[in-house]
Amino acid sequence: MHGSKGGQVMITDPSELEWAIQTLVKNYDRYSSRGGCCGCCCCCKKQQRGISKGGFQKMLTHELNHMLTDTKNKQAANKLICDLDENHDGKISFDEYWTLIGGIASPISCLIRQQEENVKFTK
């Protein structure tokens, strides 16, 4: 695991946070390049690509199965997919993908903060 300690930054290696962002970008590319595309970056330039709704659902079950075990989060995810119905372009663009993952991350972020507060109180 890459990481920067105490604010000192390794210039050669990507930081942990950079690894995380790149992983999310790669994940988008992996699911958006399915179906006819050879998977290389050059195709994506020529054609506006996105993740199909089915592909997004597949991604949620394959890549986010632990995070979505919590019912509350599952509801949030279902709502996100419902919201996609209103957007009739049928494909999830990178922006939309990012917003959706953010929608999943945000409640988790709140939970973590609450947990940290609780830990503080019990100390």
């Binding site: 942990e16 946070l17 690894w19 995380a20 962002i21 992983t23 999310l24 994940n27 394959h62 890549e63 986010l64 199965n65 632990h66 995070m67 993952i101 999943i104 991350a105 988790i108 972020s109 709140c110 973590i112 903060r113 940290e116």
Partner: peptide
């Protein structure tokens, strides 16, 4: 999964730096 770990890292970084005043 890598994606989940990635999301966790992004969240943790937010909380790492949100230290002034109200931490939300």
């Amino acid at each position: 999964t890598d994606v989940e770990r990635a999301i966790e890292i992004v969240i943790n970084n937010f909380h790492c730096y949100a230290v002034k005043g109200r931490k939300e």
